[in-house]
Computed example of a mutant assay.
Amino acid sequence: MNPTLWRRLLAEFAGTALLVAAVVGSGIMATTLSPNDVGLRLLENSIATALALGALILTFGPVSGAHFNPVVSAADWFLGRRAGTGLPARDLGGYVVAQVLGAIGGAILANLMFRLPAAELSTRQRTGGDLWLGEVVATAGLLLLVFALTRSGRAAIAPAAVGAYIGAAYWFTSSTSFANPAVTIGRAFTDTFAGIAPASVPGFVLAQLVGLAVGVGLLLALYPSVRDVAVAQNGDERMSDLGRNRTA
């Protein structure tokens, strides 16, 4: 299956839009249902996001790879550029544009579903070294997970694993794990629970780019190539067989 570029861009646009709609929409619903309990709101928001992300990866993955995230697309291009197995350089810009436009569209869609102004810039300030560090950790961990699964031949479990990671990272990172420049930009267009003030966006995006570098560096240290991972796994299997033979 080799979808044409426009189909892949459509998948990235629609998938990112629905992801942001899930993030923003569940935040609005959580605020409505739990107006006096911020912790419960975050729980409701994180569960909805994690489940939606897994479902969207299953839906759009066969078409575009279900990146929904410029740092994932950039890492895919960088890691596969020599072997020619990653995202082609000529398509990278299109993916990023589709993701950003999709994220903005998703925020607008969520606003409209809840009878709010279609686009209203957020006033929710999110800034500070602690939050930026949280974004570095969230982004690096996401990239390491995604490409470790790919390089070790376990990509089939990515929908569940990625959804679980993002759901958990809502809670263990100070920034509540945006981990995505496109989603960060999109969330600036809603003045709701999930929003981020436009002035806070550059700091988050810069931290996510640092997370991109850290995540790729860790991946190359731990999983230098698909071939090396396969050799290591075969070696482990031979050692296991040897151990079983000795105890037989």
Rank of each mutant, 00 (worst) to 15 (best):
G102K: 10
I104R: 09
G105I: 02
G106I: 08
G106F: 06
G106T: 08
L109V: 07
N111L: 13
L112W: 14
M113E: 02
L116M: 13
P117D: 12
A118T: 11
E120N: 14
R124G: 04
G129F: 06
D130I: 15
L131A: 00
W132F: 15
L133R: 03
E135T: 11
E135H: 11
E135N: 13
T139I: 12
A140L: 13
A140E: 11
G141E: 06
L142C: 05
L144T: 08
V146L: 15
F147L: 07
A148W: 05
A148G: 09
R151H: 13
R151S: 10
G153V: 04
R154F: 06
A155Y: 09
I157R: 07
I157V: 15
A158R: 14
P159G: 05
A160F: 15
A164G: 12
Y165F: 14
Y165M: 13
Y165K: 00
Y165T: 04
G167P: 09
A168I: 12
A169V: 07
F172H: 14
T176I: 03
S177H: 10
F178E: 06
A179K: 07
A179I: 08
A179D: 05
P181W: 09
T184Q: 03
T184H: 03
F189R: 05
T190I: 12
D191A: 14
T192Y: 00
I196W: 02
A197H: 03
A197C: 01
P198L: 08
A199Y: 04
S200L: 08
S200R: 04
P202S: 04
G203T: 06
F204V: 01
F204I: 05
F204W: 07
Q208P: 07
G211H: 01
G211W: 00
V214C: 01
V216K: 05
L218E: 03
A221C: 12
A221I: 09
L222G: 15
V226H: 10
R227S: 11
D228C: 09
V229D: 12
A230H: 11
